[in-house]
Design a binder for these strands. Structure first.
Lengths: 218, 218
DNA sequence: AGCAAATTGTTAATTTTTTAACAGTTTTTT
DNA sequence: AAAAAACTGTTAAAAAATTAACAATTTGCT
């Protein structure tokens, strides 16, 4: 079914977006959709939509289009959302708590099994039925539960130490909110960085460039 | 100084990262750096580093390299971080509060002047010296304070209504954490989306693809 | 059943992005 | 002071990503 060539990161990064739009369509009761319609909805070209799906073999039918439900399921399966995984969250400050409370882990097959913080005032509190424990417990916990991935919501300076420990405990997958560059120290780690401040700076640029433009246009 | 051609989004999205690394170097007291060294640190090619900076005219000196401080300042200026801007945050749930508490707005020239939520239990509380107000006050507040950008941390269904009001109040720049597609309804709005769940799904794919790989290798 | 319309998968062309190459300048060394 | 080494800016080449084109197939209509 799947094509043999390696899939490019550009395609992968579009998959969650497809998945999101298809889930919506599915909820709205839409049964079928053409590459043209989907492209219009997502502001892509129909060509790109077809090209993307073809990386995985193509799930459509000539003259008909794509079955929303099938396409959604295929992408869900490609993304591996159905495969059960367990995660620990390290850092239960403002950001960590928001991530824990806000993120829908279950639909991605992720079970949040542990939350850790070094701040004694937070230890003992419960988030999503998970008790916040001391980071001192990391070793004992990970050896016992063998989580697949770690969510890093600690400050940069703490991140280095935490990562060293997590890595030596066998964790190779990181969802990293800190500014510590995990991949630099652990080349075989798979790291997905979330740099919210980078995103905000990009917006700053666009504001600034826009103002420049308006000035010139005057 | 700046080259006339439009800068590509690929370059823009790398600028905050350059800025981050240069700020670090600056803190460490490093005075000069070559494209080669910076590339190694950031895992890019020296060629790309030089190409990127050349979009804006090139700030280096042959045989010497780049002055860390100057380069940092140039990028800061390109990103428009020095230009003062005001922002309102709409939605003070888990995510909104984390963004308000966690994000360093000041270094980006952004003043957080208002926070709004519809939940009466949150109204009156203070975050970063800003009182949370009822969303009913949005119109009055925006007419008076004329904020430049809005940070959207409300659920998708609420986002549509909030956006309609913010747009009609003249706000054109959005840092959007909701899954509502602002740009679809307001083509002239400048929107920077933060889709944390997309990022997590990308990690899921990489985990899943990795496992596949290991299975095959056995 | 037969024909027009719709739509995919796929190949080709185009555009964008990245990498390489190198002339020209500055710094450092001897 | 001259020669070698270290760099950048810039142009050229290569690679990657996107868009266009079209044959093949299916649907839906008459």
């Amino acid at each position: 079914m799947a094509k043999s060539d390696r899939i490019s990161m550009s395609v992968i990064r579009r998959l969650p977006r497809y998945y999101r739009f298809l889930s919506e369509l599915s909820c709205e009761g839409v049964m079928r959709i053409s590459s043209k319609q989907l492209a219009a909805k997502m502001r892509l070209t129909a060509s790109q939509v077809r090209q993307d799906f073809n990386c995985f073999g193509g799930f459509g039918q000539q003259g008909y289009g794509y079955s929303v439900e099938q396409l959604k399921n295929e992408i869900e399966s490609i993304l591996g959302l159905k495969e059960p995984k367990t995660a620990v969250l390290v850092g239960a400050g403002n950001l960590g708590r928001a991530v824990a409370a806000h993120m829908a882990f279950e639909p991605k097959g992720i079970g949040l099994v542990g939350i850790f913080d070094r701040d004694k005032r937070l230890i003992g509190a419960t988030l999503r039925n998970v008790k916040i424990e001391s980071t001192d417990m990391l070793e004992e916990f990970c050896k016992r539960r063998r989580p697949n991935l770690a969510i890093l919501c600690v400050p940069k300076d703490a991140a280095q130490n935490i990562c060293k420990r997590l890595y030596s405990l066998g964790i190779r997958y990181y969802w990293n909110f800190s500014h510590y560059d995990i991949a630099a120290d652990y080349p075989d780690a798979v790291v997905e960085n979330v740099h919210m401040s980078d995103s905000l700076m990009t917006l700053c640029y666009r504001i600034s460039a826009d103002i420049e433009y308006k000035k010139r246009a005057e």
